[in-house]
């Protein structure tokens, strides 16, 4: 099979054969095949770029079918609360070219909404469900956004930056109260170290 860069218009299944392309060739192939020109080399075997939210699905489809990135490694979500945005980072791996493409998408935090890519990649289902559970982003078209890990959770999506797990812990749990065996060594005794208002729980 010829190098895919020579046949940009035809869609073909990704091939495990053929010579792997160099990073620059891949970047230009991505630009040519997907029409999105923000991609650049970040480090060896890492390419990154920005995609508009509404263009992600077609970009991902083209990246898979025409450039050969057939493995969805992960979808990561970052809560940029100060900017009022979620950043979704889609990590695609090419088995043939041994490169990773990270496509960044910014969506408004309220309402966090994004088109699903489960129709392209089954594994996206887990990642989207996970992001929905932990950040509250709704993936349009994903039919399985049921709670998975936090099935009994009543609070807000906990990975959001405005949820403080320490506050939660303080509100819901108490620290273990010890009667240390070395109490007599402590100036004023260990419990003397505590303040007024304590001891009511005993």
């Amino acid at each position: 099979m010829n190098a895919q860069t020579q046949a940009p218009t035809t869609s073909r299944p990704p091939a495990a054969t053929g010579a792997p392309r160099m990073t620059e060739a891949l970047v230009s192939a991505i630009t040519a095949e997907t029409g999105i020109a923000t991609f650049r080399t970040k480090s060896p075997r890492r390419i990154e770029g920005t995609v508009q939210a509404d263009a992600l699905h077609s970009f991902a489809a083209a990246l898979r079918s025409r450039v050969g990135f057939e493995h969805l490694s992960a979808i990561s979500c970052v809560d940029w609360i100060a900017e009022g945005e979620f950043e979704l980072v889609y990590h695609f791996w090419s088995y043939r070219d041994s490169h990773l493409v990270s496509a960044r998408v910014r969506i408004p935090r309220e309402p966090g909404s994004m088109a699903t890519i489960t129709d392209l990649w089954l594994p996206a289902s887990f990642f989207e469900r996970d992001i929905h559970e932990f950040y509250g982003v709704v993936f349009q078209g994903n039919t399985d956004l049921e709670r998975y890990i936090l099935s009994d959770w009543k609070g807000p999506p906990p990975m959001r930056k405005d949820f403080s797990s320490r506050d939660f812990a303080h509100e819901h749990f108490t620290f273990k109260d010890y009667e240390p065996t070395w109490d007599e060594l402590i100036d004023g005794g260990y419990h003397g170290q505590k303040r007024q208002g304590e001891g009511s729980d005993e």
């Binding site: 990561s76 970052v78 594994p123 887990f126």
Partner: peptide, 14 residues
């Protein structure tokens, strides 16, 4: 932010 992509998320679920 640290996102942990465990190897088992695909194997163990879908």
């Amino acid at each position: 932010r640290v996102h942990v992509r465990g190897a088992s998320v695909t194997h163990g679920v879908h």
